[in-house]
């Protein structure tokens, strides 16, 4: 049996982690909808007992429920695109949409780490050809790596632009502290990047740590 490289072992774990994260997110959405529906029932019951019914309050609750349904639908659409990325070994894909989906899915992960994620994405699609699932893993791992070096309350900015025949994803954050363990994770991610024909680069200037993924546009 051939040996599985360490960066590969993480792929299944990554898929599982994202699934767990989205199910947690959906449970929250459903809980909130449940509370709103419960409150509507409470207010109607109170009205039957003689308490005046505030129609504006009911309209607001109805809007809140619709808002949560929209939030849940968006999360599921993003997760569906994420999951279907594993369907094909090679495909042409829109890197702008991929980064946007991943950042949205990783937002709560960042919040839990006490950080925030921001994006600076182009308005147009940047088409690349590659293994969609590995590209997702690569970008997400780079975000995670930067988050691991950040202090609480800091933010990560994810930028994307095209430079000739290369798509460049840059993750920036104020992160002065990196450890040997962190550097080892960079080496591991760099190996994974090479396998996707991408190049990972790190630099630190004036306390701003940046991770850059250069992905060929084929």
């Amino acid at each position: 049996m051939s040996e599985v490289p360490p960066h590969r072992e993480g792929e299944l774990a990554f898929f599982g982690r994202m699934g767990a994260h989205v199910s947690h997110e959906m449970r929250n959405v459903l809980s909130i909808i449940g509370e709103y529906a419960g409150l509507l029932a409470d207010l109607l019951e109170a009205a039957e007992a003689g308490r005046p019914l505030d129609s504006e309050r009911l309209k607001q609750l109805s809007r809140n429920i619709a808002g949560q349904v929209a939030k849940g639908t968006e999360t599921m659409q993003r997760f569906s695109r994420f999951a279907h990325a594993a369907d094909q070994q090679t495909a042409s894909l829109d890197l702008t949409a991929l980064v946007e989906d991943l950042v949205a899915l990783a937002q709560r992960h960042a919040t839990r780490a006490g950080c925030t994620l921001k994006t600076q994405l182009p308005n147009e699609a940047i088409a690349v050809t590659g293994n969609p699932f590995r590209l997702q893993h690569l970008v997400f791992s780079a975000i995670e790596l930067l988050l691991a070096a950040l202090e609480n309350g800091e933010s990560v900015t994810v930028r994307l632009h095209a430079e000739g025949s290369t798509a460049v994803v840059t993750m920036l954050g104020k992160a002065p502290i990196t450890t040997d363990e962190w550097s080892a994770r960079v080496s591991q991610l760099s190996a994974a990047a090479n396998e996707s024909k991408a190049v990972l680069d790190t630099s630190c200037t004036e306390g701003i740590l940046s991770l850059t993924l250069a992905i060929p546009i084929q």
Binding site: S31, I32, E35, L39, D42, A46
Partner: peptide, 15 residues
């Protein structure tokens, strides 16, 4: 930390 949940729950308990 889910603001919507916390405040709605508070309102329901108040009722």
């Amino acid at each position: 930390d889910e603001e919507d949940l916390a405040f709605t729950l508070a309102e329901r308990l108040t009722l």
